[in-house]
Amino acid sequence: MTDYQTWERRTPRQRIGRYILMLIVLVAAAVSWQLLQINYSYLGTAPTEFMDLINRMYPPNVGYTGEIISPMIETIHIAILGTALAVLMSIPVALIGAENTTPNRFTFVLGKFIISASRSVNVIIWALVFVIIFGSGALAGTLAIAVRSIGFCSKLIAEAIEEIDPGQVEAIQATGANSIEAAIYGIVPQVKPALIGVSTYRWDINVRASTIIGFVGAGGIGVELNTSINFFAWQQVLTILLAILIIVVFSEVVSAYLRRKVR
């Protein structure tokens, strides 16, 4: 009998590790599936229901377009103003949240705290909170978007500040410039691409977010969408969805263009 050489891709230990990992994933999946107690009859009828929905949606209600122009504009206002506010407020937060520019230990921790508090609460929850405070409307939505975006923007800007080349700042200091001038010439040009990139990227995200905060009354197209769905006005729903699609794709093109422009 010939002794063939065998070949195994992994050592036994690696293999056992992989099997255990897969087992954990499978168990998690099985337990989760069990917990959800999904009614399979719904799953069976879902395709039919879905096709039915599409049939009821098509064709979109063209006459409705006029009515959604103003909420769509409000949506864009919310996204832009919310992003602008967020970027403005995140500059000081980023400065204290970056290791090389923070004045002391306490401000650094404060900066990190603001960043993580803002990031860990979803925009829709922020919207709920601001609706309680300022009542329904675009103001609550704008603030929700702004507050939710501060953490994201500050985190990325702080990272950019931490990565700057200190030599450039030093060279400006060596000419006898004061510290503000050293920041304008030494730090700002180095951080500018990150600043523009972060704000356009966040604007992209915020356009999507501003379409839904209307579900809790915080202004924008979401209010109309919610109403149309509740009244089963599916053709209006499709009109709104198409309008959202156009705006989202448009904002994506604009922000991609801006990011290319700033190298």
Partner: peptide, 17 residues
């Protein structure tokens, strides 16, 4: 990518309950 998860969720609720 275009639609927020809540929009998809609201439609899915209408479709499957």
């Amino acid at each position: 990518r275009s639609f927020h998860e809540l929009i998809i969720a609201i439609i899915a609720v209408k479709a499957v309950g």
